[in-house]
Structure formats: structure tokens, C-alpha cells
């Protein structure tokens, strides 16, 4: 199957640090591809490179076959992402934020309003629809941001730690939404620190470490944490200098 997101031998260097070190990874339609890794492993950097937030020093990034720097509105209308803070403005109400996000993702005004109402219900945000975003709890703000990223029905979804501030109810809602997106044909790239959580929904789990993919974990397998740390330790054993530098930093 043709990948809808491809990163090939991508490198990004910040001073002495190689945030991405020849990373190669892809996402195909209809799958949830989870990436796991320690803090600073390169997960967020690879997601930023995927949507053009940063320009790699070398390597190739393709979104639906296009370079992110050259991709047009037609390509980006098919993408939904939440990598940094949610697309949620504190002075707007929850509903206004959803409508604004849907419009910025290419929906006409009428369609955006109908979509906003549907996602208010889907993400259990109806009670707060008329509230300004700055009055929401962190978890509900996270829900709002995720709804803003998903409401236009993207074919490629990129989410960085989507469940980080969510309560168990929110986690289930997001998990169901991602599974539904993939079932509808979308490719999903999601990062998480929670191995059990991604193991339940991912079709592929890639371990990111020191800016590259150092292995894969089998979804549904047992003792994922143990296998993850074993993989990281094995990699560090082959690269002691890099490992020491990371420890020092």
C-alpha cells in the first residue's frame, strides 16, 4: 500500500544534538502507527517535520506525495494534526473554536457549524459549548484541541501525546475516535508514553530512540515496557558516546 506520510533518512541537528538521525518511517491509509520513546527521543521533531513546522537538514518528507514546503491547500485539507498546543483560542467559546478550526481546515461555514455540533456531542463537550476556552480544565481543553484536529475528517491524522491530560473517559473517547478514523481509511500517526494504551489500538508500534527508529514492538504483545527498555539499552550499548551525551544533557 502506498504510504500517505513518508520520512526517509531524515536528519535534524540542533547544535551538538541530532534530534533526528537518519530516521525513516511511514504511515499508510487505514492504520494506526504508534511511535513510542523516551523524552527527547525525536518523536515531536519528526511530527513537526511532517507538517513543515521545521525543515530537516537532510532527508525527504512526503505528505500524500508532496514536500510539506510545496504542498497546497488540497493536500493540507486532508491532514489533521495536534503537535503543539491545541488549535483553541482562549477568547473564543468551545463551539466557536470548533467552527473556526473546521473552516481553517477547508469546510464551508454551514458545513463547519454542522460538524462542530456533531463533534461537541462526540467528544462530550456539549455542556461547555458556550464557555470560553480559557475557562476549561486542561483535560477538556485537550479534548477540544483533538476535536479541532479531527472534525474535518482528515485522511492523515498526526497527534503528539493526545491523551496526556485526559481522564479515563477522555482516553476512551479519543481511542474510539482514532480507531474510527482508521476504520474509515485514515492513516494515524500517534505518539505516546503509555505503551499499554497504544498497544490496544495500534497496528504498528515503532520505537524511536536517539532520533531514529531502533525497532518495533508487536501490538498486543505482553510486557511491552520490558521489551521497550531492552531495545533502548541494546541501542545505547552500541552507541556509548551518544548515550553518555544524552545522560549528561
Amino acid at each position: 500500500m502506498t504510504p500517505i506520510l513518508e520520512l526517509t533518512d531524515v536528519t535534524k541537528i540542533y547544535g551538538p544534538e541530532r534530534a533526528l538521525d537518519g530516521l525513516t518511517l511511514d504511515v499508510v491509509a487505514g492504520e494506526i502507527h504508534a511511535i513510542v520513546g523516551l523524552n527527547g527521543a525525536g518523536k515531536t521533531t519528526l511530527m513537526r517535520a511532517s507538517v513543515g513546522m521545521l525543515h530537516p537538514d537532510s532527508g525527504v518528507v512526503r505528505v500524500f506525495g508532496s514536500d510539506p514546503d510545496a504542498a497546497g491547500p488540497g493536500t493540507w485539507a486532508r491532514v489533521g494534526q495536534m503537535i503543539e498546543a491545541p488549535l483553541a483560542y482562549r477568547e473564543l467559546t468551545v463551539r466557536e473554536n470548533l467552527v473556526a478550526a473546521a473552516r481553517l481546515h477547508g469546510l464551508e461555514r454551514g458545513a463547519a457549524e454542522a460538524t462542530a455540533d456533531r463533534w461537541l456531542a462526540a467528544f462530550d463537550l456539549g455542556h461547555w459549548a458556550a464557555r470560553r476556552a480559557n475557562t476549561l480544565s486542561l483535560g477538556n481543553r485537550q479534548r477540544l484541541g483533538l476535536a479541532c484536529a479531527l472534525a474535518h475528517g482528515p485522511e492523515l491524522v498526526i497527534l503528539d501525546e493526545p491523551t496526556i491530560a485526559l481522564d479515563p473517559g477522555g482516553v476512551v473517547i479519543v481511542r474510539d475516535a482514532l480507531v474510527a478514523s482508521a476504520a474509515a481509511g485514515a492513516g494515524v500517526l500517534v505518539s505516546s508514553h503509555h505503551l499499554d494504551e497504544v498497544a490496544r489500538i495500534a497496528k504498528r508500534i515503532s520505537v524511536i530512540h536517539a532520533g531514529k527508529v531502533v525497532g518495533t514492538l508487536k501490538p498486543g504483545g505482553v510486557d511491552l515496557e520490558h521489551r521497550f527498555f531492552e531495545m533502548v539499552r541494546e541501542y545505547d550499548a552500541t552507541r556509548p558516546v551518544a548515550s553518555e551525551r544524552r545522560k549528561a544533557s
Binding site: G72, G74, V79, I83, E84, A88, R103, H105
Partner: peptide
């Protein structure tokens, strides 16, 4: 300051 600049990438509205 609000961190929303990251959300303005990957949009059909440039």
C-alpha cells in the same frame, strides 16, 4: 505565547 502557532501548520489556509 499561547503555543497556537504550531496549529497553523498543515492547514489549507496558508
Amino acid at each position: 505565547v499561547d503555543g497556537t502557532v504550531g496549529s497553523l501548520f498543515g492547514l489549507p489556509v496558508a
